[in-house]
């Protein structure tokens, strides 16, 4: 009997080995792809942060340890860029979430043409970025933009036209306004989905107890939305803090930390320093998001 059992065990282990091999073969394309496009760039970027990379390929790269990190933290321009990024991120996260919440609450009511209205609200989020940027630049152009035309010629609120997008005084508020407008539909979509799943019975029970609109919003809607609002804020914070394309395309005069990194890499040709900044940013983001999730959201 014993030899038969041993044979069966051997056969069993052969089958499991073969299945293991099959599993690896099936996983291999994904593992290779993730390795090439995610793991390798991360490792390469970390290595670059510690290396001075000459533009001349004939010259060797030089390991410089923490020198590039030290140069960055001693550069006042870097800290200014960090402050600009924090202002931009805080304003756009708060603005787009609040606007998304307000519009979602409005659009959750029954009214004629609700489907079309909901679709239109999504437009800023789904339209191609470059076409939006060009439209905004033309709208706010100092000479032939219609915003100046309205403010200066039709309703004479302003004495003369302004360059809303490029002048130092208005560039940052414009980029913030643009990003709030562009990203509120995302918050709207998430919040609306959650609003639709709140049981009506809760509101009916509150009405029986004599609750008004504000009391229902505060004591039922907001607690029910807590999780989704928390997720929107975390994701938007990560996305907007690392936002480059919107800022760079709309105005060349808002140097947030991502724009600063780009300029270090491609205008000063300092790839090593740019990689070091990216490393610092990643650490900063991980720390801030962890703190937020643990202390504020208590997840």
């Amino acid at each position: 009997m014993a030899p038969v059992r041993a044979l069966a065990r051997r056969r069993g282990s052969a089958v499991s080995q073969q299945e293991n091999r099959l599993a690896w073969a099936l996983l291999a394309p994904s593992v290779i792809l993730v390795g090439l496009v995610v793991v390798y760039p991360i490792i390469s970027s970390i290595r670059m942060g510690f290396t001075r990379i000459p533009l001349d390929p004939a010259m060797p790269e030089e390991f410089v340890g923490l020198e590039q990190y030290s140069e960055i933290v001693h550069d006042p321009e870097f800290w200014l860029a960090i402050v600009r990024s924090l202002v931009h991120t805080a304003a756009t996260v708060a603005g787009s979430t609040l606007l998304g919440l307000a519009v979602a609450v409005l659009m959750n009511r029954e009214f004629a043409g609700r489907g079309i209205a909901r679709g239109i609200v999504l437009m800023p989020y789904v339209a191609p970025l470059i076409s939006l940027v060009f439209a905004w630049r033309y709208m706010f152009h100092p000479v032939y933009g219609f915003v100046n035309y309205w403010f200066v010629d039709i309703l004479p609120i302003l004495a003369g036209p302004r360059d809303w997008v490029e002048s130092p005084a208005f560039a940052m508020p414009m980029v913030i306004l643009f990003d709030i407008w562009r990203y509120f539909p995302y918050a709207f979509l998430m919040i609306l989905a959650r609003l639709q799943s709140i049981p009506k019975a809760l509101y009916e029970a509150a009405e029986v107890d004599g609750a008004g609109s504000w009391a229902k919003f505060r004591h039922i809607t907001m607690p029910e939305l807590g999780f989704v609002l928390g997720s929107i804020v975390v994701l938007r914070w990560i996305w907007n803090f690392t936002k480059f394309d919107d800022v760079w395309l709309l105005s060349r005069n808002v140097v947030t930390v991502t724009v600063y990194t780009y300029l270090r890499a491609f205008q000063s040709f300092d790839l090593g320093q740019a990689a070091a900044i990216s490393g610092l940013l990643a650490l900063g983001l991980i720390a801030s998001v962890s703190l937020y999730v643990k202390r504020v959201l208590r997840w």
Partner: peptide, 14 residues
Amino acid sequence: TPPGPESWRDARDL
């Protein structure tokens, strides 16, 4: 010049 910074595109268009 017009308000704000100008680039080659403004020059040509204006």
